[in-house]
Design a protein around this nucleic acid. Structure first.
Lengths: 110, 110
DNA sequence: TTGAAATTTCGCAACATTGCGAATAAACTG
DNA sequence: CAGTTTATTCGCAATGTTGCGAAATTTCAA
């Protein structure tokens, strides 16, 4: 490894380390898990609401996307952590919707 | 480097769409695949743009999310069909962003 | 209360995504 | 040009997600 101590220049590696530090210091494991838990819960709720909105039973929605009720039930469980893009798309497709995915900047408040 | 321009894509899009529409008219299954292909392409592009925006090499982003450059490369490949929520979240998290997922009604027919 | 439909939980096989190194190609620097 | 960094491709093991039946629980209407 080349040894650089440049004060004047800012190698890309520095930026990486900074980002890395922000990632792990500014976002403790607990916070991150919390956010993930919330996200999962939100997805579960959206699926449930979507299904409820069209008044389908889990069994019916299951048939629409080619699976079983127990799978739908699992998806609507707020504690389920295995949500996938593939499944969301299948549900959206069956209900004549599409999935939109956006990256949204998080403003780190103080 | 294989064709990976991510600048302007407007010009040819019209003609391409017309051709595809004629070819796939009345064939939902294929249309659906087309939509999926587009969605995948869009995700790949978004990841690439996001990484480019913060001026990170694939290797650097890879380290941020705890993986290798070949994985990032795969994600940025427009033909990759294995995009997952989990990976998108990891990338978003590393870049101080969050993933927003929406179900959006499609108005069919016309 | 009773029965039927709907939902929930569990376990495991099948399938899909990720990890990761190594080799190749391309882009960049001097 | 050679040397360095970056990007791409491939294969396979490891991990994660889905499929699905069966049984337990809840909901609901009669």
């Amino acid at each position: 490894m080349p040894d650089k101590k440049a004060k004047t220049v800012k190698p890309a590696s520095d930026a990486v380390e900074i980002l890395h530090r922000r990632f792990f210091e500014g976002k403790p494991a607990r916070l991150k898990n919390l956010e993930e838990a919330r996200a999962n819960e939100e997805i579960a709720r959206k699926i449930h609401e979507l299904r409820a909105a069209v008044a389908l039973a889990q069994t019916q929605l299951a048939k629409l996307i080619g699976t079983t009720a127990s799978v739908i039930c699992r998806l609507e469980d707020a504690d389920y952590e295995g949500h996938s893009l593939a499944m969301l798309r299948r549900i959206a497709g069956a209900l004549n919707q599409r999935i939109e995915i956006r990256f949204i900047p998080i403003r780190r408040s103080a």
